[in-house]
Simulated assay, not measured.
Amino acid sequence: QRPPPPGQTAPPPRPQRPPRQAAPADTPPSQQDAPRERRQALPGETVAPAPDETVIAPPRQRINNPTAVFSGLDKITGRIISFDVAIDETVQFGALQVTPRICYTRPPTETPQTTSFVEVDEVTLNGEVRRIYGGWMFAASPGLSGVEHSIYDVWLTDCKQTAPLVQGQAPAPPAAAPAAQAPPPQRR
């Protein structure tokens, strides 16, 4: 051990733990390896698991959604457009065709994570369709998984439980409509 620098005092020595003693030979094996009892947590207090305990987290839940929400940037005009696409449907954005295959979210009680498996095709000037992207998109990190085209960028922003509204089409009625009520009686 080195001496302390001039003008300073040495820190106090650390207390030494006594060595662990083996159980006496006449102690039954079932009591030798018995785990220590855990102290009950007080209200508002958390108690860490003992070092020999394994904590298994419950599996994360995924919510399957029927609609994926994307944003698209047209680099020529500088406009950003948000559009909804139903799962397994194809929407044209400029020269790109966007087809989500699945869209997952997590329940509000868990860490938010929105993911979608997406296929993006480009329609060339010759009318040929070629795949430029096929993979997972993450709403939390669009720079990691968005489509970067020379003219258009597309990235996932959200998933929704409602079907997308097609222009010129009436919105779908709610799934469970309340029973029709009789009109209120008229006063005379």
Results as ranks from 00 to 15, higher is better:
residue 101 R to Y: 14
residue 106 R to I: 04
residue 66 P to R: 02
residue 122 E to W: 03
residue 107 P to V: 12
residue 109 T to R: 14
residue 1 Q to L: 07
residue 59 P to K: 07
residue 121 D to C: 05
residue 49 P to C: 06
residue 144 L to Y: 06
residue 38 R to I: 04
residue 92 Q to W: 05
residue 57 A to I: 03
residue 26 D to C: 06
residue 97 Q to A: 09
residue 35 P to R: 03
residue 149 H to E: 10
residue 104 Y to H: 15
residue 72 G to D: 01
residue 13 P to T: 11
residue 85 V to D: 00
residue 94 G to M: 03
residue 98 V to W: 00
residue 123 V to N: 01
residue 72 G to Y: 02
residue 182 A to H: 10
residue 129 V to F: 08
residue 103 C to M: 04
residue 106 R to D: 05
residue 95 A to G: 10
residue 31 Q to L: 13
residue 69 V to W: 01
residue 64 N to W: 06
residue 111 T to E: 15
residue 32 Q to N: 09
residue 158 D to P: 01
residue 20 R to F: 09
residue 65 N to I: 01
residue 97 Q to I: 03
residue 177 A to K: 12
residue 95 A to Q: 06
residue 64 N to F: 11
residue 149 H to V: 05
residue 148 E to S: 13
residue 112 P to L: 13
residue 84 D to Y: 03
residue 4 P to C: 06
residue 97 Q to S: 12
residue 188 R to P: 05
residue 44 G to V: 05
residue 50 A to H: 08
residue 168 G to D: 08
residue 10 A to S: 13
residue 31 Q to F: 09
residue 107 P to E: 08
residue 138 F to A: 04
residue 31 Q to T: 07
residue 137 M to W: 00
residue 105 T to K: 04
residue 82 S to E: 15
residue 14 R to M: 08
residue 65 N to F: 01
residue 158 D to F: 03
residue 134 G to M: 10
residue 140 A to S: 15
residue 19 P to S: 06
residue 127 G to D: 08
residue 22 A to D: 14
residue 187 R to K: 10
residue 188 R to L: 11
residue 178 P to W: 07
residue 7 G to Y: 06
